[in-house]
Nucleic acid binder design. Structure first.
Lengths: 351, 351
DNA sequence: CTGAAAGCGCTTACAG
DNA sequence: CTGAAAGCGCTTACAG
């Protein structure tokens, strides 16, 4: 059996030097005669030398410590819970490769708490960080601090320009809105109206909600036709009562509504209204595959959920940071999650 | 910095034995006094010992050789090309972990060629195999041979019971047909007819086509209503001419067709018919995201493509075999691919 | 039944 | 500017 790869020893032999010298050249650590350097580089290139990463990991014997700065998850926030789960799961796998993952979670409604968690992250002396930069000013401060400590970081969920983040993993909220629109467009007779519902913005990331709305509207703009009339309402409280009350009024005054789109995650609240008022012919489309929504999807009160796979987001982010730390592999600058279309027939693959 | 994991040396110290003895216990290699064994096992369990996989890989210094037995890919067979690409890509990644991947590709129409490739696979003395068992009898023979040589194998695309395959990765063809049906059902007025087209079965896997058809029909059965009338036709040749000619006749005799479903991959041939005859109001749904189909999807002659992600299939299969060989990790018995819904607005994420 | 030694491929001091 | 040695955690003969 021939060896699949050349080693530094092979290179050293061929060049007539010691492995120490080869290592110096390969890592640009200087202190090598120009002629020697050239010779070694030529040989390495010729045989397509690739370092044995396992040997490297073993010898450096260092644990890569990766810090994760994301919001606390709660039942009302399935989105971040999925991130958390995905990262935990991946972290378990990476344990065998000497990776340690620590979470620094903050209250999603408190910039002060974000700063507290940031400080803890810095103090933990991690080798790399995955950060959800939800508060602009505070996140820029954190970026500066990470830069100063030479800690590479990667953003998740929200991107921030003007920082030295090595990459970003997140949803394409604009396109997500367009996909929602396209699905409604497919099923809705052109004579019916569409109701756009923005629900409890503050629970979600306002920036994403805005982008989704823009995407949703852009779809019909581009089409050059007005698929029914569209009207948008905001309902600040994400409670069954508030939603039912408000929608009752809207439906009383608009007899032609054929479809409802919910820009945030709480689509099931609107589904509850449809169920209570026994409306089975309204198309309802929303976002995010999670328990309450799925329940109504399976019972056909919701026709489609547009999915972002937040769990994958976490997994990808951690994976990218791992590859960067161990292998120097530069992540994709902006990695957008697939926008997926889920209905009652394929939802089983998403839960 | 505390060590993240206990090593065999630590266990040896604590037990007052040498690392050789610890290794013997950990690998059940016998030749160890009962009392010693118990003591070591207790300590290992107590400290939750996990072997350092990188050290193990380094010391055994063996290249895991994985053989892949799949059909040749051609332009008319994007499905297997995607598998090939996915596996190649993953193989490149795994190179750093001393994994070598060899392809053994056969003519999809020749059982004899499958046997030839099988023989080569066996002769190559691989450590594990990923096999597309497309010919039943020949595949069973191959399984027996692999069993005899103690080579673990995993099936891809098609599953075969009565073998000792460690797992299966493939599409859920039945559900895929159901999803196609559900999407048509959403967009089609109940008064219109649906045409089911089975195109050039032989190019595809006949078994999958059958399952998709069953799934498609089951959707409407379960619904308990007849969404328009459904009729099915077979077109043996996958050529523009054959398809156009046949469809012309069908449409001449049926004025009420509102939707067409194509069970195989060549949906674009039907799209060509729609384009040539300037029919813009027919809903067309098919399977597999690949160049020709995507072209017509983007131009709205095709409304939806149901995707199976064959590339992921290859990646998952190789990953599972890798985890099994290096880590002894048992793969999921039946791993079905997600059935995904793709339209012109989210197709960009699939190409 | 048990231990000591060599070696996998690499990196890190250290000596010259 | 260069080489020799130690060591990462594990496995594999080999000696006793």
């Amino acid at each position: 059996m021939t060896k699949s790869h050349i080693t530094i020893k092979d290179i050293a032999n061929e060049a007539g030097v010691s492995i120490g010298t080869v290592d110096r050249v390969l890592h640009n650590r200087g202190e090598v005669a120009e002629a020697t350097r050239k010779k070694i580089e030529t040989i390495a290139a010729q045989y397509n030398y690739k370092p044995n990463l396992m040997a490297r990991a073993l010898t450096t014997n260092r644990t890569f410590h990766i810090g994760i700065l994301i919001p606390q998850a709660s039942t009302s926030n399935n989105y971040w819970w999925s991130h958390y789960e995905g990262i935990r799961q991946k972290a378990l796998e990476l344990e065998a490769y000497a990776v340690k993952v620590s979470f620094f979670r903050f209250d999603i409604n408190s910039a002060a708490d974000f700063e507290r968690a940031s400080r803890e992250l810095i103090d933990a002396k991690v080798n790399g960080a995955v950060v959800a930069p939800l508060f602009r000013v505070e996140s820029e401060k954190l970026s500066a601090a990470l830069d100063e400590h030479n800690i590479p970081y990667l953003f998740i969920d929200t991107d921030l320009s003007n920082t030295n983040a090595i990459g970003f993993v997140g949803e394409d909220a604009y396109q997500s809105g367009r996909v929602a629109a396209s699905v409604i467009d497919f099923g809705l007779p052109t004579t019916s109206d569409i109701l756009m519902v923005n629900l409890a913005k503050d629970f979600d990331n306002a920036q994403h909600i805005t982008s989704r709305n823009q995407g949703f509207l852009s779809y019909f703009m581009d089409l050059g036709r007005n698929n029914g009339m569209r009207m948008a309402i905001d309902i600040p409280q994400a409670t069954t009562e508030a939603v039912c009350e408000r929608l009752k009024t809207v439906f009383d005054n608009n007899k032609n509504i054929g479809a409802i789109w919910v820009s945030g995650v709480h689509t099931y609240l609107v589904a509850q209204f449809l169920e209570r008022t026994a409306r089975r012919n309204i198309i309802l489309v929303g976002h995010e595959v999670y328990e309450q929504n799925v329940n109504y999807l399976q019972r056909n009160y919701i026709q489609f959920l547009i999915a972002q796979q937040p769990k994958d987001q976490g997994i990808k982010a951690l994976n990218s940071m791992f590859a960067y730390l161990t292998d120097g592999k530069q992540p994709i600058k902006q990695e957008y999650q697939k926008v997926e279309i889920v209905n009652s027939e394929n939802v089983r693959f998403y839960i």
